[in-house]
């Protein structure tokens, strides 16, 4: 079997006497869309945060492409090529699309202007942003220089996804990317997810929306009471099965139990 992109074993995270993650495992395989579902408070966000460095687990080990890692912040994860699309977007409304795509990794001009005066290479950044948005079929915005606050919710999510897709080399985490969107905009984001997968970049999709999960996911990680309950193939089960496993109404089949 090929090495998993992410493999986490026995992750534990406690807050006081609340155990958010209870000896949980996690696995993301190359090229797949792995959906993470679970009831509210099951700890699905916690486990994903532990993987990208947003929280530091108390116990357990995380391997990325077979190599053990210990992230102290999401910035370190990002430097390894792990991108996160947040539910609340993480875009700066007053800055332009191009500025937003490059926050924290701006391109400087070549030569002394960039080296000593630290001048940004705006044309290069704008060109890159334009290319990436066009690649993902998002070039409906009037200008790459327009502030993000003038975009619709779906367009903003598009910018966030494009940013992640442009810089991710390992995998992308998407936390409820369709939660705040309308039907049409959600459809666009789902298409984007499939586009990104088609380029071979695996995605971890945290979502509450069962139809969306069953549509795009290759495997579904079901989280319950702080740990991985099982991983199922969406082709073998129905949405009501998944909800039943997730809420504990039904025991998962033995062969799928993590």
């Amino acid at each position: 079997m090929t090495t998993p992109v992410v493999q986490a074993r026995g992750i534990v995270k406690r807050y006081g006497h609340v155990t958010a993650i209870d000896h949980s495992d996690f696995e993301l395989r190359p090229g797949e869309v792995l959906a993470v579902i679970g009831d509210n408070g099951a700890g699905k966000s916690s486990i994903v945060k532990a993987i990208c460095g947003a929280t530091i687990p108390d116990e357990g080990e995380i391997l990325i492409e077979g190599k053990p890692v210990k992230f102290n912040s999401p910035i370190e994860a990002r430097e390894m090529g792990i991108e996160i699309v947040y539910q609340n977007l993480a875009l700066s409304p007053a800055l332009s699309i191009a500025d937003n795509m490059f926050t924290g990794r701006e391109i400087r001009k070549e030569g002394w202007m960039g080296k000593y005066l630290r001048m940004l290479d705006k044309p290069a950044m704008e060109q890159f942003a334009r290319d990436k948005l066009t690649e993902l079929g998002l070039m409906t915005v009037q200008s790459i220089k327009q502030p993000v606050e003038t975009l619709s919710g779906g367009q903003r999510q598009g910018v966030a996804v494009a940013r992640a897709a442009a810089f991710a080399t390992k995998f992308i985490i998407m936390d409820e990317p369709t939660a705040a969107l309308g039907v049409k905009e959600s459809r666009k984001v789902l298409e984007l997810i499939q586009d990104v997968r088609a380029r071979g970049i695996p995605i971890i999709l945290i979502s509450h929306n069962m139809p969306h999960v069953f549509e795009v996911a290759d495997r579904i990680h079901i989280h319950r009471l702080g740990k991985r309950l099982c991983t199922i193939d969406p082709k073998d089960y129905t949405m009501s099965d998944a909800v039943a496993f997730m809420t504990g109404a039904k025991e998962p089949p033995a062969q799928d139990v993590a």
Binding site: S92, P93, A94, R118
Partner: peptide
Amino acid sequence: NKTAWGRHVYAIGDDKEAADMSGIR
């Protein structure tokens, strides 16, 4: 206006949490 530092200053003033999440220290 012409350096990354300046863009970060604006991003922080705009929405500090978002700036944090997009990788600005």
